[in-house]
Design a protein around this nucleic acid. Structure first.
Length: 573
RNA sequence: UGGGGAGUGGGCUAACGGCAAGCCACCUGACUCUGGAUCAGGCGAUUGUAGGUUCGAAUCCUACCUCCCCAGCCA
C-alpha cells in the first residue's frame, strides 16, 4: 500500500506519533494493544465514542488488538444493565472486541495477591483511621500532611487484618489498605492512597464473594498489565494519577508495564457531557430518558437518526490533542448530512399542511408521477406518487405578500411541484374572522407533466407536496439543540445550567401528511423529506398504525439565511 | 498557597529550526426539478505576552499572563 497517496488515511495525532516511535524502537516487540475501559455505571455518550474510535481505531491501524474491559470495582454504583447497554452501543458504533471481553472483577483474586505482596514488601499497610481522620491527616495543597499512626504497622498484623477484612469480620470503614508512598507528596494522589476498602455490597458479577474492593488506581494499572496492554489511553484528569500508575507496576515488578497516555476529552457546543449532568437532565425530566433524541448519549443519537459512520467520521475529524477544547456541534451535523445525503432515500412529507385545490383537475382523476428515491444514485430505484385534485403543500411555501427573491408560491405565481407539474395560484381562501389562509386554488398545466413546461419557461421554485386523499397522517418531532448557549456551563451569577435549556428544543407536530410509500416504514429507517431535512422512524413510539418521525437534522437552509439578512437590512433602515 | 497540564484565524486540528496547512463555520459566484447536493473562488493568524538565542523561531531559552485538572473509602 502506498501510504503517501492514500487520501483516506486517518489523520495522525500525538498518540500515534508515540506509537510509531515505539514501533520503530521495537518496544513491546512492535505490538500494539489498547483497551476501552468503561465503568458500568451509566450510558455511553459521544465523548466515549471519541475514546472508542481512538482505541479501536489505533488497534486496527497497527494490526493490534483492543480489549473491552469493564472497570467494575465499585459495586455501589454498577449494574448489569449498563454492561449490556455499553456492549450494544459499541457494537452499534461498529466496533468488535472479538473474544476479548474482560472485567476488572475477573482479576479480583490476582489483585488481592498483589496487595498481599505489597504488604509483605513493606509497601502497604492496613490503616484503621476513620474516613474523616484520613482526610484530615492527608492535609491539603498548603497544609503539610501527618503520617498515619498505622503506617508502620507490622507486616504480619497488616496481613492478618487484610485477611480478616476479606473474611468480612469488619464493618465498612473500619479499615482500609493503603499504599505506603509519600504522605507529603505535592501530588495528593501519592499521599498513601487507599487501595482496598470494605464494601459489604453485592457485586453484579462476583455476587457476595467479596466484601473488599480495589480502588481504581490499583486495579486499573494492574488490569492493563495483566492483559498485556501496551498503550493505556485515558483522559487528561488522570495525568496526576500517572505517577501512581507507574508506582504500582514498578513496585510489583510486573512483566508488562503499559504506557499511560492522556488526551483531552470531547466537549460539544450546545450540550453537556458529564454523567452527573446528563443524569440530572433525565431525573428532572428535562428530557424523556437517556435515549431522548436530544441527548448526546449514543442511544440518544441513535434514536435521533445519527448513523455510526457519521459519528466515526466526526471522531476522526476532530482530532486528538491535549488542549481543552469545545467542538462546534455544526461539525457533527455536517458529518451527519454528508453521510445521510448519500444513503437516505428521498420522500415527500408536509409538516404544516396547507390545502390546495387544483381547479382544472376533475374530482376522482388521479395522475401518477415517477419519482426517483435518490437524485444521483439510480440503484435506489423509484416509486409512483399520486397526484389528485386536492393536495397539501407546506404552509410556509406560500406567501400572500412575498418578499424579494421569493420563488415559492404566491397569488398569480407559478411553481413546480416536485416530480409532478407546474401549478399556478389563482385564488386564496381566507378565514373570515382570523384572516388566516385556509385554502389555495390553483390550476395545473397538463403540458408540464413530469415537471418541465414544454415552452421552456423557467420555473425557479419547486415545492414538495402530497395528495390529500392518498397521504398518510404522521407525527413529526422537530428536535433542536438542547441548550441555547454554546457552553451551558458558563453560568452567569451561579445560575444552574438547566436554566440554559432551549424551550424550543422539541416541537411536536401531530397532523403531518406523508406520501403513501411510507406505509410500514421500519423503525430507525432514515429518509430525506425533500427540502426539509433528514428524518428517521422513531423506534420507540412509531407503530404500524401511527407513524412517528424524528427530525434528525434539517437540510442547509440558504433561504432562511437570505430572509434573515433581508429582515436585518429592513430593520436597519 | 503546592502539584500536574494547556495556549496556533470564529471553532477544531496540523507544522517537529526554513513559504503558518487542512476541515467546519462564514461570504461570493456557477450549476440545479430539493433555496439540498456538487463545483469554483473568497474572508479570516503580527502562533497568549515580553525579552533572548539564531542568517532564520509557532518550534529552542528566560520571565510573565490566562485557562483547565487534583484535597472520594468515585472512575
Amino acid at each position: 500500500m502506498n501510504r503517501d497517496s492514500t487520501d483516506t488515511a486517518a489523520p495522525s495525532n500525538f498518540i500515534k506519533d508515540i506509537i510509531e516511535e515505539d514501533r520503530k524502537n521495537n518496544k513491546n516487540d512492535g505490538r500494539v494493544a489498547t483497551r476501552f475501559p468503561p465503568e458500568p455505571n451509566g450510558y455511553l455518550h459521544i465523548g466515549h465514542a471519541k475514546s472508542i474510535c481512538l482505541n479501536f481505531g489505533i488497534a486496527s491501524e497497527y494490526q493490534g488488538t483492543c480489549n473491552l474491559r469493564f472497570d467494575d470495582t465499585n459495586p455501589t454504583t454498577e449494574e448489569v444493565k449498563y454492561v449490556e447497554s455499553i456492549k450494544s452501543d459499541i457494537r452499534w458504533l461498529g466496533f468488535d472486541w472479538g473474544d476479548r471481553l474482560y472485567y476488572a472483577s475477573d482479576y479480583f483474586e490476582k489483585l488481592y495477591q498483589y496487595a498481599v505482596q505489597l504488604i509483605k514488601d513493606g509497601k502497604a499497610y492496613v490503616c484503621s483511621l476513620s474516613e474523616d481522620e484520613i482526610k484530615d491527616y492527608r492535609g491539603d495543597y498548603y497544609k503539610k500532611a501527618r503520617e498515619s499512626p498505622y503506617c508502620s504497622r507490622p507486616v504480619d498484623e497488616s496481613l492478618e487484618l487484610l485477611e480478616r477484612m476479606r473474611a468480612g469480620e469488619f464493618e465498612e470503614g473500619a479499615h482500609v489498605l493503603r499504599a505506603k508512598i509519600d504522605i507529603n507528596s505535592p501530588n495528593m494522589n501519592m499521599r498513601d492512597p487507599i487501595i482496598y476498602r470494605i464494601r459489604k455490597e453485592r457485586h453484579h458479577r462476583t455476587g457476595d464473594k467479596w466484601c473488599i474492593y480495589p480502588m481504581y488506581d490499583f486495579a486499573h494499572c494492574l488490569s492493563d498489565s495483566l492483559e498485556g496492554i501496551t498503550h493505556s489511553i485515558c483522559t487528561l484528569e488522570f495525568e496526576d494519577h500517572r505517577p501512581l500508575y507507574d508506582w504500582f507496576l514498578d513496585e510489583l515488578a510486573v512483566d508488562c508495564h503499559p504506557q499511560q497516555i492522556e488526551f483531552a476529552r470531547l466537549n460539544l457546543s450546545y450540550t453537556v457531557m458529564s454523567k452527573r449532568k446528563l443524569l440530572e437532565l433525565v431525573e428532572q425530566r428535562h428530557v424523556s430518558g437517556w435515549d431522548d433524541p436530544r441527548m448526546p448519549t449514543v442511544s440518544g443519537l441513535r434514536r435521533r437518526g445519527y448513523t455510526p459512520e457519521s459519528i466515526r467520521n466526526f471522531c476522526e475529524r476532530i482530532g486528538v490533542a491535549k488542549a481543552d477544547s469545545m467542538v462546534d456541534v455544526a461539525l457533527l451535523e455536517y458529518c451527519l448530512r454528508e453521510d445521510l445525503n448519500e444513503r437516505a432515500p428521498r420522500v415527500m412529507g408536509v409538516l404544516r399542511p396547507l390545502r390546495v385545490v387544483i381547479d382544472n383537475l376533475p374530482e376522482g382523476q388521479v395522475e401518477e408521477f415517477d419519482a426517483p428515491y435518490h437524485p444521483t444514485d439510480p440503484s435506489f430505484g423509484s416509486r409512483k406518487v399520486p397526484f389528485s385534485r386536492v393536495l397539501y403543500i407546506e404552509r410556509e411555501d406560500f406567501r400572500e405578500d412575498p418578499p424579494g427573491k421569493w420563488f415559492r408560491l404566491a397569488p398569480g405565481r407559478e411553481v413546480r411541484l416536485r416530480y409532478a407539474c407546474i401549478i399556478k395560484c389563482v385564488d386564496v381562501v381566507k378565514d373570515e374572522k382570523t384572516e388566516e389562509v385556509v385554502e389555495l386554488h390553483c390550476t395545473w398545466d397538463p403540458e408540464s407533466r413530469g415537471g418541465n413546461p414544454p415552452d421552456g419557461r423557467k420555473i425557479k421554485g419547486t415545492l414538495h407536496w402530497v395528495s390529500a386523499d392518498h397521504s398518510l397522517e404522521a407525527e413529526v418531532r422537530l428536535y433542536d439543540r438542547l441548550f441555547t448557549k454554546a457552553n451551558p456551563l458558563e453560568e452567569k451569577n451561579g445560575s444552574d445550567f438547566t436554566a440554559q435549556i432551549n424551550p424550543e428544543s422539541l416541537e411536536i407536530l401531530k397532523s403531518c401528511r406523508v406520501e403513501p410509500s411510507l406505509a410500514g416504514a421500519k423503525p430507525e429507517s432514515k429518509y430525506q423529506f425533500e427540502r426539509l431535512g433528514y428524518f428517521c422512524v422513531d423506534p420507540v413510539d412509531s407503530t404500524g398504525e401511527r407513524l412517528v418521525f424524528n427530525r434528525t437534522v434539517p437540510l442547509r437552509d440558504t433561504w432562511a439565511k437570505i430572509e434573515k439578512a433581508q429582515l436585518e437590512a429592513d430593520r436597519r433602515k
